[in-house]
Each structure stands twice: as C-alpha cells, then as structure tokens.
C-alpha cells in the first residue's frame, strides 16, 4: 500500500479514531503489571515461536513422504497415508493433543523399559507431547496439500529427466520437489499462520507459552481485557511477520 492510498480522508479519520482508542486503552486500563511479567512473557513468546518453527519444519518433512505416497505410492502406502490425513483433518486438534498427553502420558509409566530409558526425563514433561501433536497435525494438513502439488508437476519434465538417465532420487531432488514446493508456497504461508493459531492449545497441557502467560496474568491480577488485547496484538504481529517472510520467499523464487 502506498502512502497516497493511506492518506485518503476516511482512512485518516479511521486512524485518528484508532489512535484515540489506543490512548484510551493506555490511560484507563491497568498496565502496571507489565514490568513484573515482562520476563515471563518474553520467555513465553520465545517458546511459542520455537514450537511454531520446530513443528512446521518437522511437519513439512513428514508431509513430503505422505504426499508422495498418496500421489504415486502403491496402494499399501497410499491407503495408510490417506487414512492418516483424513483422521488428522477430521478430528479437533485439542482432542489429539489431549489424547497424546493424557493417553500416552498415562500409558508410559506402566511400561518398565520406558521408565528405565534415558528418554524418561523428557517424556515426563509436557512439551514433547505438544511438539508431537502439532507436528502430526501440520503433517496431516500439509500432506494433503503436497499430494496435489506432486501430481500437478508437469509430467513432461519428469519424462525428460528420465530419458537423460537421471537417477530417480536426483530427479526427485532436483526437479520434482523444488517445483512442488514452489507451487505450494502460497498455501504454506496460510497453513503456517493456521499453525500459529493452533499453538495456544498446548497451554492446556501445561506448556507455558505466551497464551499461558496471559492466562496467568488474568488470574493473578483479576483483570480480563488487558492481557487478552496485548496477546491478540502479539499474534497479529507474528502473523504479519510470517506473511512478509513468505512473500519474500515467493518473490525470491522465479515464477513461471
């Protein structure tokens, strides 16, 4: 948006109104708790971003074989992949998180060799379940997208690579995957924002990310709107950053 478009009369009025609203919020609501909770909030913010990045990368890596299996795999690979995607997309994420955390969490202590293993100190915490649930969810949604992307790549190019004697893996790495990823980049941005919006759900299994911090402020200070408004602002900013990053990505790959 150019400056000129921003300076239309009605937009100036709206911005003025918004500024008045912000000033009113700053003056009449309670903000004295911020210094006290700022370190915790920063930690929570960092944890939200960390979970978002890790689960998106892991989920995407998992989505590639899922999409590939559905696009060209034999039926004994395609069918489980399709069932996985349907189940993940057909049930609420909250239910999946609770199933993993409470279900596996109550199962593991009963198995002696898991209790004895080196992983046990991690399995007693909440975040591995959060990461696992969010990764699987992202993979489920993205697997479906990748299926479409893989089957939309021009067959002629693959045949050409094949006829030059390119090994199948090189062909996949050099031709098929890059083009599929290029064609899903816009969707990927949207899905990543959806994933961002899914992260507060892990607060329900005691992972202290930014949403959990805001709930704590609400119950400690007995205030309602202030932390929620600030929280919404944080998410808006992160979503904006994701949009910009993906736009930059999209512009940096040559388009047809």
């Amino acid at each position: 948006m150019t400056l000129r478009a921003l300076l239309q009369p009605h937009r100036i009025v709206m911005m003025a109104l918004f500024a008045i609203f912000v000033i009113w919020c700053a003056l009449s609501l309670r903000w004295d708790w911020i210094p006290q909770y700022a370190p915790l909030a920063l930690e929570g913010l960092w944890r939200t971003i960390w979970i978002l990045i890790v689960t998106c990368i892991l989920g995407f890596l998992l989505a590639i074989p899922l999409g590939l299996a559905q696009a060209i795999g034999p039926w004994y690979l395609a069918a489980p992949a399709r069932v996985f995607c349907t189940v993940i997309r057909g049930t609420p994420l909250l239910l999946q998180i609770w199933l993993l955390y409470y279900g596996l969490g109550s199962l593991f202590p009963q198995i002696p060799w898991i209790r004895g293993s080196d992983l046990w100190p991690y399995l007693r915490q909440a975040w591995p379940y959060a990461v696992l649930a969010l990764t699987l969810s992202y993979a489920g949604y993205e697997g479906e997208v990748m299926r479409g992307a893989f089957s939309s790549v021009n067959k002629g190019q693959l045949e050409a690579a094949n006829s030059f004697g390119m090994p199948r893996f090189t062909m996949f790495r050099r031709i098929w995957l890059p083009q599929a990823i290029r064609s899903v980049l816009p969707t990927l941005g949207g899905e990543t924002i959806l994933q961002l919006k899914a992260t507060p759900l892990v607060a329900t299994i005691t992972v202290v990310e930014i949403y959990a911090v805001s709930s704590r402020v609400r119950s400690d200070m007995l205030i309602v709107y202030e932390p929620l408004l600030l929280l919404a602002l944080f998410y808006l900013i992160i979503a904006g950053v994701i949009t910009l990053l993906f736009r930059k990505f999209e512009n940096s790959v040559p388009s047809r």
Partner: peptide, 12 residues
C-alpha cells in the same frame, strides 16, 4: 479475525 487464534477470540 483470521490472524488471531480462535481461542483468544473466543475469550475476548
């Protein structure tokens, strides 16, 4: 609405 998590919107 599309950038803020549903959970936060629901509370607000």
């Amino acid at each position: 609405i599309r950038a803020v998590p549903e959970l936060v919107l629901i509370l607000i």
